[in-house]
Design a protein around this nucleic acid. Structure first.
Length: 462
RNA sequence: CGGGGCGUAGCUCAGCCUGGUAGAGCGCCAGCUUUGGGAGCUGGAAGCCGGAGGUUCGAAUCCUCUCGCCCCGACCA
């Protein structure tokens, strides 16, 4: 039997209430795009990758390249915003450099040949050699040298948050090791080493604050400088069994208080070096044993979420980033660079926060703060109660995802646990009879029955 | 880049060894019943079996080549 396509009949369209103007930042699930997967996709081996796919956050396009769907994009933007705020607070200046760069810049620094196959090389229609940037030292140095000519304009620190491409031989673990990834990279310019090291430790402090705000316990470890070059570097790791790096550290490193670090202090480096923490490349078993009491020695795996480098004049000399000093002499500037894997952090945060049922977002990065659940979408009283709560949450500016779908209660609970919003507010017929709603904390699993007003208060509304 | 594995419906997979009209569960659509932890029944839609060659009367199945994806290792935010 032939049926006309649904769009020929207005009656066939699903009835979705139009979003109110006041609903900005809030969302009815019936109008959202949240393609949940009930089963584990076979390609995903580690938990964050599985959960991101199952929770409808990302979709793979090709190996190591992903689309970010609405829920995932919200989480990504939350992470990005925290990174931005802490960079701004440290005095760094946000810019935005292009993804596509001219090869000449990289030929100048000598890295065009060094970088190898990881760099995606492109030719434009005029046969000009271009590349999709794996990082931006050359680009920012070029900007700097065109405009900054005097030591009196220093220090400066520029950052941007931009997509990078590194043609990894073997991308894996979802967004944790993609070929295309979102990265915050900052570049500092100073007149001398002393000042450059201060810039370095300013970033050190900013990084500690950034990761802690995301509910993580960062472990800063001494690191190799690798192809970026230089002689001072730290990596910041999040502990996770699925991490790719091996760490050796003093368990007291978690006591390191970034608020008490003075980046300008002459002894800051020694202070931080006072805590033993190293990747396996830098690990010295003899030193580990003499300096750290056995009870505090830790050997664990970690996910690298950031790395900072001081590399002196490695780029400024070949590229002519030179300022005039107080005595009229030319001085190549002292540089550092500072990266945070923004898209990787989303995966790392999930690795650090989940259970068998799904993701457990820290409030600071959760894509929504609250999931409002109408357990019985066909019931007029439930609809009225849930709609009223939704309107109040909306007015209070509490980011809410409102599950108004006509699904079974079990499916709704499972979906909420999977996407892991910090709070769930459940409206059901049982509670309505008693004049209560149920507030559940995703992290602890604690639930309590409250009057709607009390629940709103608890969530900070009104 | 070395080694291994897998491509069949949106997802998870069976069928392949031993060639003979393409299957299941979940999801999706319609209807009815249900409703506090992934509901039930009935009916339905949906796949050039990754692609190209070959063998054969006949290929998801056998052979060759290719492309894609995943895993282990070496390398990297």
């Amino acid at each position: 039997m032939h049926r006309p396509p649904a769009w020929t009949s207005a009656a066939a369209l699903p009835k979705v209430p139009p979003p109110l103007a006041a609903e900005q930042g809030l969302m009815r699930l019936s109008a959202y795009f949240l393609p949940l997967l009930r089963e584990n996709p076979s390609e995903a081996q580690i938990v964050s990758h599985r959960l991101m796919l199952r929770a409808g956050m990302i979709r793979q396009s090709s190996a190591g390249i992903y689309s970010w769907l609405p829920l995932g994009l919200r989480a990504l933007k939350q992470v990005e915003q925290i990174v931005r705020e802490e960079q701004d607070a440290s005095g760094a200046l946000e810019v935005l450099m292009p993804t596509i760069q001219p090869a000449e810049l990289w030929q100048e620094s000598g890295r065009y040949d060094d970088y190898g196959k990881e760099m995606l090389r492109i030719t434009d229609r005029h046969e000009r050699a271009m590349l999709y940037g794996p990082t931006n030292e050359e680009q920012i140095t070029d900007i700097f040298r065109h405009s900054i000519k005097s030591y009196r304009d220093l220090p400066k620190n520029f950052y941007h948050i931009q997509w990078k491409f590194r043609d990894e031989v073997r991308p894996r673990f979802g967004v944790m090791r993609g070929r295309e990834f979102l990265m915050k990279d900052a570049y500092s310019f100073d007149i001398d080493k002393r000042s450059a090291v201060t810039a370095y430790f300013k970033m050190f402090v900013a990084y500690m604050k950034t990761f802690k705000r995301m509910g993580l316990k960062p472990i800063p470890v001494r690191a190799e400088t690798g192809p970026i070059g230089g002689d001072l570097s730290h990596e910041f790791h999040v502990q996770a069994d699925t991490g790719e790096s091996e760490l050796y550290f003093d368990s007291d490193v978690v006591l390191l208080d970034e608020n008490r670090i003075d980046p300008a202090s002459l002894t800051v480096q020694d202070d931080i070096a006072g805590w033993y923490a190293a990747t396996d490349e830098k690990h010295d078993p003899a030193e580990f044993e003499t300096r750290v009491p056995e009870a505090r020695r830790r050997h664990a795996r970690g996910i690298e979420v950031g790395q900072i480098f001081y590399f002196g004049t490695k780029y400024s000399k070949p590229m002519g980033a030179v300022v005039v000093g107080p005595g009229d002499e030319p001085i190549p500037v002292e540089m550092g660079s500072y990266g945070i894997g923004v898209s990787r952090l989303v995966g790392a945060i999930i690795e650090a926060g989940h259970d068998d049922a799904g993701i457990i977002w820290p409030e600071s990065v959760a894509p929504f703060r609250l999931g409002l659940v109408n357990l019985r979408a066909g019931d007029a009283r439930c609809i009225a109660a849930a709609d009223e709560l939704y309107a109040k949450l909306c007015a209070a500016g509490i980011e809410t995802l409102y599950d108004d779908r006509d699904e079974s209660p079990g499916a709704k609970f499972a979906a909420m646990d999977l996407i892991g919003l910090p709070y769930q507010l459940v409206v059901g017929p049982r509670g309505i009879d008693k004049g209560v709603v149920e507030l559940k904390e995703r992290g602890t699993g604690k639930r309590q029955e409250l009057s709607p007003e009390a629940a709103l208060n608890r969530l900070g509304a009104k």
